[in-house]
Design a protein around this nucleic acid. Sequence first.
DNA 1: CGTTTTGTTGACTCCTATCAATAAAGGTGG
DNA 2: CCACCTTTATTGATAGGAGTCAACAAAACG
Lengths: 232, 232
Amino acid sequence: MDSCQTCVVRNRAICADLEFDEVELLNAIGRRRTLSAGEQLLWEGEDAVLVANVIEGVLKLSNSMEDGREQIVGLVYPSDFIGRPFGATTPYGVEALTDARVCVFARRDFDNFARQHPRLEHKLLERTLAELDRTRAWMLLLGRKSAEERLATFLLEISQRLEPVTCADPANSRHDTIEMPFSRQQVGDVLGLTIETVSRQFTKLKRDGVIDLPSRRAVEILDREELVARAG
Amino acid sequence: MDSCQTCVVRNRAICADLEFDEVELLNAIGRRRTLSAGEQLLWEGEDAVLVANVIEGVLKLSNSMEDGREQIVGLVYPSDFIGRPFGATTPYGVEALTDARVCVFARRDFDNFARQHPRLEHKLLERTLAELDRTRAWMLLLGRKSAEERLATFLLEISQRLEPVTCADPANSRHDTIEMPFSRQQVGDVLGLTIETVSRQFTKLKRDGVIDLPSRRAVEILDREELVARAG
DNA sequence: CGTTTTGTTGACTCCTATCAATAAAGGTGG
DNA sequence: CCACCTTTATTGATAGGAGTCAACAAAACG
Protein backbone atom coordinates (compact mmCIF):
# COMPACT_ATOMS: atom_id res chain seq x y z
CA MET A 1 0.00 0.00 0.00
CA ASP A 2 1.15 3.53 -0.79
CA SER A 3 2.03 5.70 2.15
CA CYS A 4 2.94 9.34 2.56
CA GLN A 5 6.27 8.35 4.08
CA THR A 6 7.47 6.95 0.76
CA CYS A 7 5.71 9.50 -1.42
CA VAL A 8 7.93 10.95 -4.14
CA VAL A 9 6.74 14.48 -3.40
CA ARG A 10 6.93 14.00 0.38
CA ASN A 11 9.66 16.62 0.76
CA ARG A 12 8.34 19.16 -1.73
CA ALA A 13 4.57 19.24 -1.22
CA ILE A 14 2.76 21.08 1.57
CA CYS A 15 3.23 18.05 3.82
CA ALA A 16 6.99 18.64 3.86
CA ASP A 17 7.16 20.28 7.28
CA LEU A 18 4.86 17.88 9.09
CA GLU A 19 6.06 15.51 11.80
CA PHE A 20 5.94 11.76 11.32
CA ASP A 21 2.71 11.32 13.25
CA GLU A 22 1.05 14.31 11.59
CA VAL A 23 1.75 12.76 8.22
CA GLU A 24 0.17 9.55 9.42
CA LEU A 25 -2.99 11.45 10.34
CA LEU A 26 -3.05 13.14 6.97
CA ASN A 27 -2.48 9.79 5.31
CA ALA A 28 -5.58 8.49 7.06
CA ILE A 29 -7.92 11.10 5.56
CA GLY A 30 -6.47 11.09 2.02
CA ARG A 31 -6.44 8.56 -0.75
CA ARG A 32 -4.55 8.08 -3.99
CA ARG A 33 -6.28 8.44 -7.28
CA THR A 34 -5.06 8.01 -10.82
CA LEU A 35 -6.30 10.14 -13.70
CA SER A 36 -6.01 9.49 -17.42
CA ALA A 37 -5.00 12.28 -19.78
CA GLY A 38 -8.09 14.36 -20.49
CA GLU A 39 -9.94 13.26 -17.36
CA GLN A 40 -11.61 16.02 -15.36
CA LEU A 41 -11.09 16.16 -11.59
CA LEU A 42 -13.17 19.25 -10.73
CA TRP A 43 -15.75 21.26 -12.65
CA GLU A 44 -15.88 25.06 -12.64
CA GLY A 45 -18.61 26.31 -10.33
CA GLU A 46 -19.39 23.02 -8.62
CA ASP A 47 -19.27 22.61 -4.86
CA ALA A 48 -15.73 22.54 -3.57
CA VAL A 49 -15.84 18.92 -2.46
CA LEU A 50 -12.20 17.98 -2.65
CA VAL A 51 -8.64 19.22 -2.64
CA ALA A 52 -5.54 17.35 -3.77
CA ASN A 53 -1.79 17.19 -4.07
CA VAL A 54 -0.25 16.29 -7.41
CA ILE A 55 2.14 13.35 -7.18
CA GLU A 56 2.80 12.84 -10.87
CA GLY A 57 1.64 14.42 -14.12
CA VAL A 58 0.47 17.84 -15.26
CA LEU A 59 -3.01 19.31 -14.88
CA LYS A 60 -4.64 22.51 -16.09
CA LEU A 61 -6.90 24.95 -14.25
CA SER A 62 -9.29 26.77 -16.56
CA ASN A 63 -12.10 29.30 -16.70
CA SER A 64 -14.47 29.44 -19.60
CA MET A 65 -17.31 31.50 -21.01
CA GLU A 66 -20.74 30.32 -22.15
CA ASP A 67 -19.78 30.71 -25.81
CA GLY A 68 -16.85 28.32 -25.44
CA ARG A 69 -13.94 30.74 -25.08
CA GLU A 70 -11.52 29.26 -22.59
CA GLN A 71 -8.54 30.54 -20.65
CA ILE A 72 -6.14 28.28 -18.80
CA VAL A 73 -5.49 30.12 -15.53
CA GLY A 74 -2.92 27.79 -14.06
CA LEU A 75 -0.77 24.75 -14.72
CA VAL A 76 -0.19 22.30 -11.92
CA TYR A 77 2.90 20.13 -11.60
CA PRO A 78 4.05 17.42 -9.16
CA SER A 79 4.05 18.61 -5.52
CA ASP A 80 1.60 21.42 -6.34
CA PHE A 81 -1.67 21.78 -4.49
CA ILE A 82 -5.10 21.74 -6.17
CA GLY A 83 -8.45 23.03 -5.02
CA ARG A 84 -10.09 25.68 -2.93
CA PRO A 85 -9.81 25.14 0.83
CA PHE A 86 -12.17 27.19 3.02
CA GLY A 87 -14.41 27.97 0.06
CA ALA A 88 -17.85 26.91 -1.06
CA THR A 89 -17.30 26.49 -4.79
CA THR A 90 -14.43 25.55 -7.05
CA PRO A 91 -13.86 28.64 -9.20
CA TYR A 92 -12.17 26.78 -12.07
CA GLY A 93 -12.17 23.43 -13.81
CA VAL A 94 -9.30 21.00 -13.23
CA GLU A 95 -8.35 18.52 -15.94
CA ALA A 96 -5.41 16.17 -16.32
CA LEU A 97 -3.25 16.94 -19.37
CA THR A 98 -1.21 13.78 -18.92
CA ASP A 99 -1.89 10.58 -17.06
CA ALA A 100 -1.55 11.66 -13.46
CA ARG A 101 -1.53 10.51 -9.87
CA VAL A 102 -2.97 12.71 -7.17
CA CYS A 103 -3.54 12.47 -3.47
CA VAL A 104 -7.10 13.63 -2.77
CA PHE A 105 -8.84 14.77 0.41
CA ALA A 106 -12.45 15.59 1.17
CA ARG A 107 -12.30 19.37 1.51
CA ARG A 108 -14.04 19.37 4.90
CA ASP A 109 -11.58 16.84 6.30
CA PHE A 110 -8.68 18.81 4.90
CA ASP A 111 -10.01 22.13 6.24
CA ASN A 112 -10.38 20.67 9.72
CA PHE A 113 -6.93 19.13 9.62
CA ALA A 114 -5.38 22.37 8.37
CA ARG A 115 -6.97 24.49 11.09
CA GLN A 116 -5.48 22.18 13.70
CA HIS A 117 -2.03 22.14 12.12
CA PRO A 118 -0.61 25.63 11.69
CA ARG A 119 2.55 24.28 10.05
CA LEU A 120 0.42 22.93 7.22
CA GLU A 121 -1.52 26.18 6.94
CA HIS A 122 1.75 28.06 6.84
CA LYS A 123 3.05 25.90 3.98
CA LEU A 124 -0.21 26.36 2.15
CA LEU A 125 0.02 30.12 2.66
CA GLU A 126 3.55 30.30 1.28
CA ARG A 127 2.50 28.24 -1.72
CA THR A 128 -0.59 30.36 -2.33
CA LEU A 129 1.43 33.57 -2.11
CA ALA A 130 3.96 32.20 -4.60
CA GLU A 131 1.17 31.10 -6.94
CA LEU A 132 -0.40 34.54 -6.72
CA ASP A 133 2.93 36.12 -7.71
CA ARG A 134 3.23 33.79 -10.70
CA THR A 135 -0.35 34.46 -11.72
CA ARG A 136 0.16 38.22 -11.57
CA ALA A 137 3.30 37.95 -13.67
CA TRP A 138 1.15 36.09 -16.21
CA MET A 139 -1.31 39.00 -16.31
CA LEU A 140 1.43 41.18 -17.77
CA LEU A 141 1.85 38.61 -20.52
CA LEU A 142 -1.88 38.41 -21.26
CA GLY A 143 -2.48 42.15 -21.08
CA ARG A 144 0.57 43.55 -22.78
CA LYS A 145 2.74 41.07 -24.70
CA SER A 146 2.67 40.22 -28.40
CA ALA A 147 2.11 36.69 -29.68
CA GLU A 148 5.83 36.09 -30.16
CA GLU A 149 6.68 37.42 -26.71
CA ARG A 150 3.99 35.22 -25.18
CA LEU A 151 5.23 32.03 -26.80
CA ALA A 152 8.87 32.77 -25.97
CA THR A 153 7.95 33.48 -22.34
CA PHE A 154 5.94 30.29 -22.18
CA LEU A 155 8.72 28.11 -23.59
CA LEU A 156 11.18 29.53 -21.07
CA GLU A 157 8.75 28.95 -18.21
CA ILE A 158 7.99 25.33 -19.07
CA SER A 159 11.65 24.56 -19.68
CA GLN A 160 12.08 25.35 -15.98
CA ARG A 161 8.97 23.70 -14.62
CA LEU A 162 9.05 20.48 -16.63
CA GLU A 163 12.41 19.34 -15.33
CA PRO A 164 12.29 15.65 -14.37
CA VAL A 165 11.93 15.07 -10.65
CA THR A 166 14.99 12.86 -10.80
CA CYS A 167 17.17 15.85 -11.62
CA ALA A 168 19.69 16.05 -8.83
CA ASP A 169 21.62 19.11 -9.95
CA PRO A 170 19.70 22.27 -9.14
CA ALA A 171 22.19 24.49 -10.98
CA ASN A 172 21.43 22.79 -14.26
CA SER A 173 17.69 22.83 -13.83
CA ARG A 174 16.81 24.12 -17.28
CA HIS A 175 16.30 21.65 -20.06
CA ASP A 176 16.82 22.51 -23.66
CA THR A 177 14.68 19.73 -25.02
CA ILE A 178 11.14 19.90 -23.80
CA GLU A 179 8.51 17.21 -24.22
CA MET A 180 5.39 19.34 -23.94
CA PRO A 181 2.26 17.86 -22.33
CA PHE A 182 0.23 20.47 -24.27
CA SER A 183 -1.54 20.45 -27.61
CA ARG A 184 -1.40 23.61 -29.73
CA GLN A 185 -4.94 24.37 -28.61
CA GLN A 186 -3.86 24.18 -24.97
CA VAL A 187 -0.86 26.40 -25.60
CA GLY A 188 -3.30 28.87 -27.13
CA ASP A 189 -5.58 28.61 -24.10
CA VAL A 190 -2.65 29.39 -21.81
CA LEU A 191 -1.45 32.35 -23.87
CA GLY A 192 -4.80 33.84 -24.87
CA LEU A 193 -4.15 33.15 -28.56
CA THR A 194 -5.73 31.06 -31.30
CA ILE A 195 -4.27 27.75 -32.41
CA GLU A 196 -3.29 29.25 -35.77
CA THR A 197 -1.38 32.13 -34.23
CA VAL A 198 0.44 29.72 -31.91
CA SER A 199 1.37 27.53 -34.85
CA ARG A 200 2.65 30.48 -36.87
CA GLN A 201 4.79 31.69 -33.98
CA PHE A 202 6.28 28.20 -33.52
CA THR A 203 7.10 28.15 -37.21
CA LYS A 204 8.65 31.60 -37.04
CA LEU A 205 10.89 30.73 -34.08
CA LYS A 206 11.96 27.58 -35.88
CA ARG A 207 12.59 29.38 -39.18
CA ASP A 208 14.73 31.92 -37.28
CA GLY A 209 16.81 29.15 -35.72
CA VAL A 210 15.77 29.93 -32.15
CA ILE A 211 14.12 26.56 -31.57
CA ASP A 212 13.75 23.23 -33.31
CA LEU A 213 10.60 21.13 -33.46
CA PRO A 214 11.74 17.50 -33.69
CA SER A 215 8.19 16.22 -33.21
CA ARG A 216 4.70 17.55 -32.55
CA ARG A 217 5.04 17.74 -28.82
CA ALA A 218 8.79 18.32 -28.57
CA VAL A 219 10.65 21.62 -28.60
CA GLU A 220 14.39 22.07 -28.54
CA ILE A 221 15.74 25.42 -27.49
CA LEU A 222 18.68 26.17 -29.79
CA ASP A 223 19.38 29.77 -28.75
CA ARG A 224 18.18 30.44 -25.25
CA GLU A 225 19.64 33.94 -25.17
CA GLU A 226 17.68 34.92 -28.25
CA LEU A 227 14.55 33.32 -26.79
CA VAL A 228 14.98 35.44 -23.66
CA ALA A 229 15.35 38.54 -25.83
CA ARG A 230 12.14 37.69 -27.68
CA ALA A 231 10.26 37.09 -24.43
CA GLY A 232 10.25 40.86 -23.85
CA MET B 1 -3.19 58.63 19.11
CA ASP B 2 -4.70 56.16 16.65
CA SER B 3 -5.20 52.65 17.90
CA CYS B 4 -6.24 49.40 16.27
CA GLN B 5 -9.20 49.16 18.64
CA THR B 6 -10.87 52.13 17.02
CA CYS B 7 -9.68 51.38 13.47
CA VAL B 8 -12.43 51.65 10.85
CA VAL B 9 -11.31 48.42 9.22
CA ARG B 10 -10.80 46.61 12.53
CA ASN B 11 -13.56 44.11 11.81
CA ARG B 12 -12.86 43.55 8.14
CA ALA B 13 -9.08 43.40 7.85
CA ILE B 14 -6.92 40.40 8.69
CA CYS B 15 -6.80 41.54 12.33
CA ALA B 16 -10.52 40.84 12.68
CA ASP B 17 -10.19 37.51 14.47
CA LEU B 18 -7.49 38.55 16.89
CA GLU B 19 -8.04 38.85 20.64
CA PHE B 20 -7.82 42.19 22.41
CA ASP B 21 -4.27 41.64 23.64
CA GLU B 22 -3.10 40.24 20.30
CA VAL B 23 -4.28 43.40 18.61
CA GLU B 24 -2.34 45.44 21.17
CA LEU B 25 0.82 43.52 20.25
CA LEU B 26 0.20 44.09 16.56
CA ASN B 27 -0.46 47.76 17.28
CA ALA B 28 2.95 47.98 18.89
CA ILE B 29 4.85 46.83 15.78
CA GLY B 30 2.82 48.79 13.22
CA ARG B 31 2.43 52.45 12.45
CA ARG B 32 0.03 54.61 10.47
CA ARG B 33 1.11 56.30 7.32
CA THR B 34 -0.67 58.61 4.94
CA LEU B 35 -0.07 58.61 1.21
CA SER B 36 -0.94 61.25 -1.35
CA ALA B 37 -2.51 60.29 -4.65
CA GLY B 38 0.31 59.18 -6.96
CA GLU B 39 2.71 58.37 -4.14
CA GLN B 40 4.57 55.08 -4.41
CA LEU B 41 4.69 52.75 -1.39
CA LEU B 42 6.71 49.85 -2.85
CA TRP B 43 8.81 49.45 -5.96
CA GLU B 44 8.75 46.36 -8.18
CA GLY B 45 11.76 44.15 -7.53
CA GLU B 46 12.99 45.92 -4.40
CA ASP B 47 13.55 44.07 -1.13
CA ALA B 48 10.30 43.20 0.56
CA VAL B 49 10.79 45.51 3.52
CA LEU B 50 7.24 46.17 4.51
CA VAL B 51 3.66 44.97 4.42
CA ALA B 52 0.53 46.98 5.13
CA ASN B 53 -3.21 47.09 5.62
CA VAL B 54 -5.26 49.63 3.73
CA ILE B 55 -7.40 51.77 6.01
CA GLU B 56 -8.67 54.27 3.50
CA GLY B 57 -8.16 54.92 -0.21
CA VAL B 58 -7.41 52.85 -3.31
CA LEU B 59 -4.00 51.62 -4.45
CA LYS B 60 -2.77 49.80 -7.53
CA LEU B 61 -0.37 46.88 -7.86
CA SER B 62 1.48 46.84 -11.15
CA ASN B 63 4.09 45.02 -13.20
CA SER B 64 5.91 46.70 -16.00
CA MET B 65 8.36 46.00 -18.80
CA GLU B 66 11.59 47.80 -19.64
CA ASP B 67 10.01 49.53 -22.61
CA GLY B 68 7.34 51.10 -20.43
CA ARG B 69 4.41 48.79 -21.04
CA GLU B 70 2.53 48.41 -17.79
CA GLN B 71 -0.15 46.10 -16.48
CA ILE B 72 -2.08 46.73 -13.28
CA VAL B 73 -2.26 43.32 -11.61
CA GLY B 74 -4.42 44.24 -8.65
CA LEU B 75 -6.48 46.97 -7.06
CA VAL B 76 -6.43 47.34 -3.32
CA TYR B 77 -9.31 48.76 -1.27
CA PRO B 78 -9.85 49.49 2.43
CA SER B 79 -9.29 46.43 4.66
CA ASP B 80 -7.18 44.75 1.96
CA PHE B 81 -3.66 43.56 2.66
CA ILE B 82 -0.57 44.76 0.76
CA GLY B 83 2.85 43.23 0.37
CA ARG B 84 4.67 39.95 0.20
CA PRO B 85 5.10 38.23 3.57
CA PHE B 86 7.68 35.43 3.73
CA GLY B 87 9.34 36.60 0.55
CA ALA B 88 12.59 38.29 -0.32
CA THR B 89 11.41 40.75 -2.97
CA THR B 90 8.25 42.66 -3.74
CA PRO B 91 7.15 41.34 -7.15
CA TYR B 92 5.08 44.41 -8.07
CA GLY B 93 4.97 48.15 -7.53
CA VAL B 94 2.40 49.64 -5.17
CA GLU B 95 1.12 53.17 -5.75
CA ALA B 96 -1.72 55.15 -4.22
CA LEU B 97 -4.41 56.16 -6.71
CA THR B 98 -6.17 58.38 -4.20
CA ASP B 99 -5.00 59.93 -0.98
CA ALA B 100 -4.76 56.96 1.34
CA ARG B 101 -4.10 55.85 4.88
CA VAL B 102 -2.35 52.58 5.52
CA CYS B 103 -1.12 50.67 8.53
CA VAL B 104 2.43 49.53 7.81
CA PHE B 105 4.66 46.85 9.38
CA ALA B 106 8.27 45.95 8.89
CA ARG B 107 8.00 42.67 7.02
CA ARG B 108 10.28 40.82 9.43
CA ASP B 109 8.24 41.93 12.43
CA PHE B 110 5.04 40.97 10.69
CA ASP B 111 6.39 37.57 9.61
CA ASN B 112 7.45 36.78 13.16
CA PHE B 113 4.13 37.90 14.57
CA ALA B 114 2.20 35.89 11.99
CA ARG B 115 4.12 32.68 12.65
CA GLN B 116 3.26 32.96 16.33
CA HIS B 117 -0.41 33.73 15.69
CA PRO B 118 -2.08 31.05 13.58
CA ARG B 119 -5.38 32.91 13.60
CA LEU B 120 -3.73 35.75 11.75
CA GLU B 121 -2.06 33.38 9.31
CA HIS B 122 -5.38 31.74 8.71
CA LYS B 123 -7.03 35.06 7.89
CA LEU B 124 -4.17 35.91 5.60
CA LEU B 125 -4.51 32.54 3.89
CA GLU B 126 -8.24 33.00 3.29
CA ARG B 127 -7.61 36.46 1.90
CA THR B 128 -4.81 35.27 -0.36
CA LEU B 129 -6.93 32.40 -1.68
CA ALA B 130 -9.78 34.82 -2.45
CA GLU B 131 -7.39 37.22 -4.15
CA LEU B 132 -5.98 34.36 -6.25
CA ASP B 133 -9.52 33.47 -7.37
CA ARG B 134 -10.20 37.07 -8.35
CA THR B 135 -6.90 37.31 -10.18
CA ARG B 136 -7.57 34.13 -12.14
CA ALA B 137 -11.00 35.39 -13.13
CA TRP B 138 -9.24 38.49 -14.47
CA MET B 139 -6.99 36.30 -16.64
CA LEU B 140 -10.06 35.21 -18.60
CA LEU B 141 -10.80 38.87 -19.25
CA LEU B 142 -7.24 39.65 -20.36
CA GLY B 143 -6.83 36.55 -22.46
CA ARG B 144 -10.18 36.22 -24.13
CA LYS B 145 -12.49 39.23 -23.86
CA SER B 146 -13.02 42.06 -26.36
CA ALA B 147 -12.48 45.70 -25.43
CA GLU B 148 -16.19 46.29 -24.85
CA GLU B 149 -16.53 43.16 -22.70
CA ARG B 150 -13.50 44.22 -20.67
CA LEU B 151 -14.81 47.69 -19.91
CA ALA B 152 -18.31 46.41 -19.08
CA THR B 153 -16.84 43.79 -16.73
CA PHE B 154 -14.65 46.41 -15.10
CA LEU B 155 -17.51 48.84 -14.50
CA LEU B 156 -19.58 46.10 -12.90
CA GLU B 157 -16.69 45.07 -10.68
CA ILE B 158 -15.87 48.54 -9.41
CA SER B 159 -19.54 49.33 -8.82
CA GLN B 160 -19.40 46.53 -6.25
CA ARG B 161 -16.00 47.25 -4.77
CA LEU B 162 -16.24 51.02 -4.49
CA GLU B 163 -19.28 51.04 -2.22
CA PRO B 164 -18.77 53.46 0.68
CA VAL B 165 -17.76 51.79 3.92
CA THR B 166 -20.68 53.52 5.60
CA CYS B 167 -23.11 51.46 3.58
CA ALA B 168 -25.20 49.61 6.12
CA ASP B 169 -27.42 47.64 3.81
CA PRO B 170 -25.51 44.70 2.32
CA ALA B 171 -28.39 43.77 -0.02
CA ASN B 172 -28.13 47.08 -1.82
CA SER B 173 -24.38 47.02 -2.16
CA ARG B 174 -24.18 48.02 -5.82
CA HIS B 175 -24.01 51.65 -6.69
CA ASP B 176 -25.19 53.01 -9.97
CA THR B 177 -23.17 56.19 -9.81
CA ILE B 178 -19.48 55.53 -9.55
CA GLU B 179 -16.82 58.09 -8.75
CA MET B 180 -13.81 56.38 -10.29
CA PRO B 181 -10.39 56.81 -8.69
CA PHE B 182 -8.84 55.91 -12.07
CA SER B 183 -7.65 57.94 -15.03
CA ARG B 184 -8.32 56.61 -18.52
CA GLN B 185 -4.69 55.52 -18.66
CA GLN B 186 -5.12 53.51 -15.46
CA VAL B 187 -8.32 51.90 -16.74
CA GLY B 188 -6.32 50.90 -19.80
CA ASP B 189 -3.55 49.49 -17.61
CA VAL B 190 -6.08 47.38 -15.73
CA LEU B 191 -7.77 46.08 -18.88
CA GLY B 192 -4.73 45.61 -21.10
CA LEU B 193 -5.94 48.28 -23.55
CA THR B 194 -4.70 51.66 -24.79
CA ILE B 195 -6.15 54.90 -23.54
CA GLU B 196 -7.75 55.59 -26.93
CA THR B 197 -9.53 52.25 -27.03
CA VAL B 198 -10.82 52.78 -23.49
CA SER B 199 -12.11 56.23 -24.44
CA ARG B 200 -13.85 54.90 -27.53
CA GLN B 201 -15.56 52.14 -25.56
CA PHE B 202 -16.76 54.63 -22.93
CA THR B 203 -18.19 56.76 -25.72
CA LYS B 204 -19.86 53.75 -27.31
CA LEU B 205 -21.53 52.65 -24.07
CA LYS B 206 -22.72 56.20 -23.52
CA ARG B 207 -24.00 56.58 -27.08
CA ASP B 208 -25.94 53.31 -26.67
CA GLY B 209 -27.57 54.57 -23.47
CA VAL B 210 -25.98 51.92 -21.24
CA ILE B 211 -24.07 54.42 -19.12
CA ASP B 212 -23.82 58.17 -18.66
CA LEU B 213 -20.62 60.14 -18.09
CA PRO B 214 -21.59 63.18 -15.99
CA SER B 215 -17.95 64.13 -15.45
CA ARG B 216 -14.48 62.89 -16.26
CA ARG B 217 -14.20 60.51 -13.35
CA ALA B 218 -17.88 59.69 -12.85
CA VAL B 219 -19.89 56.92 -14.47
CA GLU B 220 -23.59 56.32 -14.03
CA ILE B 221 -24.94 52.91 -14.91
CA LEU B 222 -28.25 53.47 -16.68
CA ASP B 223 -28.96 49.91 -17.82
CA ARG B 224 -27.21 47.40 -15.59
CA GLU B 225 -28.83 44.43 -17.30
CA GLU B 226 -27.46 45.51 -20.66
CA LEU B 227 -24.06 46.13 -19.10
CA VAL B 228 -24.07 42.58 -17.74
CA ALA B 229 -24.97 41.28 -21.20
CA ARG B 230 -22.07 43.20 -22.72
CA ALA B 231 -19.65 41.92 -20.09
CA GLY B 232 -19.76 38.50 -21.80
C1' DC C 1 -6.16 83.72 -17.72
C1' DG C 2 -2.61 81.23 -19.76
C1' DT C 3 -0.38 76.71 -19.37
C1' DT C 4 -0.34 71.92 -18.70
C1' DT C 5 -2.51 67.69 -18.29
C1' DT C 6 -6.10 64.59 -19.56
C1' DG C 7 -9.53 62.93 -22.62
C1' DT C 8 -11.84 62.55 -27.23
C1' DT C 9 -12.06 61.81 -32.01
C1' DG C 10 -10.34 60.75 -36.70
C1' DA C 11 -7.37 58.48 -40.17
C1' DC C 12 -4.65 54.83 -40.95
C1' DT C 13 -1.83 50.64 -39.95
C1' DC C 14 -0.83 46.31 -38.22
C1' DC C 15 -1.45 42.23 -35.62
C1' DT C 16 -4.20 38.58 -34.63
C1' DA C 17 -8.67 36.22 -35.56
C1' DT C 18 -11.32 33.96 -38.84
C1' DC C 19 -12.31 31.00 -42.63
C1' DA C 20 -10.60 27.50 -45.51
C1' DA C 21 -7.61 24.05 -47.57
C1' DT C 22 -3.96 20.76 -46.89
C1' DA C 23 -0.75 17.99 -44.58
C1' DA C 24 0.84 15.11 -41.07
C1' DA C 25 0.24 12.24 -37.20
C1' DG C 26 -2.30 9.01 -34.48
C1' DG C 27 -5.67 5.26 -33.78
C1' DT C 28 -8.36 1.36 -35.23
C1' DG C 29 -9.65 -2.81 -37.15
C1' DG C 30 -9.08 -6.09 -40.60
C1' DC D 1 1.39 -4.46 -40.68
C1' DC D 2 -1.15 -1.68 -43.52
C1' DA D 3 -5.29 0.84 -45.30
C1' DC D 4 -8.63 3.88 -43.49
C1' DC D 5 -10.40 7.33 -40.71
C1' DT D 6 -10.06 10.81 -37.25
C1' DT D 7 -7.63 14.23 -34.95
C1' DT D 8 -4.17 17.67 -34.79
C1' DA D 9 -1.14 20.91 -36.90
C1' DT D 10 0.38 23.91 -40.68
C1' DT D 11 -0.22 27.29 -44.13
C1' DG D 12 -2.68 30.74 -46.98
C1' DA D 13 -6.09 34.41 -47.88
C1' DT D 14 -8.90 37.75 -45.90
C1' DA D 15 -11.15 40.58 -42.44
C1' DG D 16 -11.66 43.03 -38.32
C1' DG D 17 -10.44 44.95 -33.93
C1' DA D 18 -7.29 47.33 -31.39
C1' DG D 19 -2.93 50.06 -31.73
C1' DT D 20 -0.55 54.13 -33.45
C1' DC D 21 -0.08 58.78 -34.86
C1' DA D 22 -2.04 63.18 -34.86
C1' DA D 23 -5.16 67.01 -34.05
C1' DC D 24 -8.24 68.99 -31.13
C1' DA D 25 -11.13 69.81 -26.94
C1' DA D 26 -11.86 70.21 -22.22
C1' DA D 27 -10.59 70.15 -17.58
C1' DA D 28 -7.28 71.11 -14.03
C1' DC D 29 -3.79 73.91 -12.17
C1' DG D 30 -1.02 77.64 -10.91
